[in-house]
């Protein structure tokens, strides 16, 4: 088996992702098949595709939550051997049964002062609710807290699994602004979305998946103006892709 070469980016602090024939089979079903990608660009890599395409499974594999059954992947920086701090925001926010600020503190590996935690909450417009039980926040607030919690760990690589699905526009705006801000600070994001408008607003490149396979991986401008695959064209035209 060939070990994927960790790609190198032109910006030494931007994490790069390389996979080689990555596959996942569970109970005889092939859910991911021969995924070979090289993500070297900074900014936000959007993962698009219909339901059941394997988008969530792919980022869970890359984040280390699921072990792939075939192939290899590597996430690298220029400084080889250095552990790359990663974080993930899940589609359904998972919050501890404690206050908003305690949820942040729980994930805080860098022992921030309380003021720093409060600033992080302010960035997601949750400072006023810092002492409220986190599970009593609205869906949008919970997801904003999840993002703040992910960012407080100072990740270099951030995976986001449909973080804005069925959220109010205000929450979507805050989340998108924070992702852009993080990108400017050198955080690489891999973002799953079903919202084509959002993909256009955020994406620097797009990976289009269907039936567990990478159909297309190209820069965002090309993907949205001139998609090469029939499936991607159909998806962008709003047709049902099976």
């Amino acid at each position: 088996m060939v070990t994927p070469k960790a790609p190198t980016s032109n910006q030494s602090e931007i994490p790069c992702i390389g996979t080689m024939n990555l596959g996942l089979t569970i109970r005889g079903s092939t859910l991911l098949n021969d995924i070979s990608i090289q993500v070297t660009t900074p900014g936000v890599t959007m993962i698009l595709g219909p339901n059941g395409a394997g988008k969530s499974l792919l980022i869970k594999c890359l984040h280390g939550l699921i072990a792939p059954t075939r192939g290899r992947f590597e996430i690298g920086l220029h400084q080889r051997g250095k552990t790359i701090p990663q974080a993930m925001v899940f589609q359904k926010p998972v919050l501890l049964r404690r206050s908003v600020i305690d949820n942040l503190q729980f994930a805080d590996r860098h022992s921030h002062q309380r003021e720093a935690l409060e600033r992080a909450l302010e960035a997601v417009s949750l400072l006023e609710k810092k002492d409220q039980p986190a599970t009593q926040l609205s869906g949008g607030e919970q997801q904003r807290l999840s993002l703040a919690r992910a960012l407080i760990t100072k990740p270099k690589l951030l995976f986001l699994d449909e973080p804005t699905a069925s959220l109010d526009p205000a929450s979507v705006l805050i989340i998108e602004q924070l992702i852009k801000q993080a990108s400017q600070q050198g955080v690489k994001s891999v973002f799953i979305s079903h919202d084509i408008g959002q993909a256009k607003r955020l994406g620097s490149d797009v990976i289009f998946l269907n039936r567990g396979q990478v159909i297309e991986h190209t820069d965002a401008a090309t993907f949205f103006t001139n998609p090469h695959s029939r499936e991607a064209k159909a998806y962008l035209d709003g047709e049902i892709v099976l």
Binding site: G64, L65, M88, F90, V94, F106, A107
Partner: peptide, 24 residues
């Protein structure tokens, strides 16, 4: 079941995970 992936993601070690389960 609810916290497992979050704890993996945050690299929470078993002793801290257990104390969190007990507290929560």
């Amino acid at each position: 079941r609810e916290y497992r992936e979050l704890f993996l993601s945050l690299n929470i070690q078993l002793p801290k995970a257990i104390s969190t389960y007990l507290w929560d």
